[in-house]
């Protein structure tokens, strides 16, 4: 996850430099508040060896989470109340969810009900 955030920062830095050269005004991953723009992160959860990894993930509203199935058996990432659901993820498939304040944070694999994990939304 850190490497992904670093990649975003690096990409953003390059974009800012290019924009500055071109004399453009840009905002880098600015959230709703323009006064204190926050960096939004892209998190990745791997589904591998019949587990979600990491099984507990701290995120902020506006971040995105991408689940990638690395197992050769299909999985899902599904909220316990099913309000969000990746549907079937075969090997290599991905599903991305943008975090909102009200999303249910406990989830599981619909096919393998012992596979459970959670998201923690930080202030």
């Amino acid at each position: 996850m850190i490497s992904i955030i670093k990649r975003i920062v690096k990409t953003g830095t390059v974009a800012l430099v290019c924009a500055a050269v071109l004399g453009l005004s840009v905002k880098l991953y600015a959230g709703d508040s323009t006064e204190s723009p926050a960096m939004l992160a892209e998190h990745i959860v791997y589904i591998e060896n019949m587990e979600f990894s990491p099984s507990q993930l701290q995120v902020k509203v506006g971040d995105s989470i991408t689940w990638i199935n690395k197992d050769f058996v299909p999985h899902t990432a599904t909220a316990l109340d099913k309000s969000w659901d990746s549907k079937n993820l075969s090997k290599g498939d991905e599903y991305t969810l943008v975090v909102t304040a009200d999303i249910p944070t406990d989830y599981y694999c619909f096919y393998h009900t012992n596979m459970v994990a959670s998201i923690e939304i930080m202030e």
Binding site: N49, M50, D71, F72, V73, H112, T113, N114, M115
Partner: peptide, 15 residues
């Protein structure tokens, strides 16, 4: 890799 899958099945069956 198969054993990890089948152990998950065993837990699921137990449940």
């Amino acid at each position: 890799a198969g054993l990890k899958i089948f152990k998950a099945h065993e837990k699921h069956a137990q449940m």
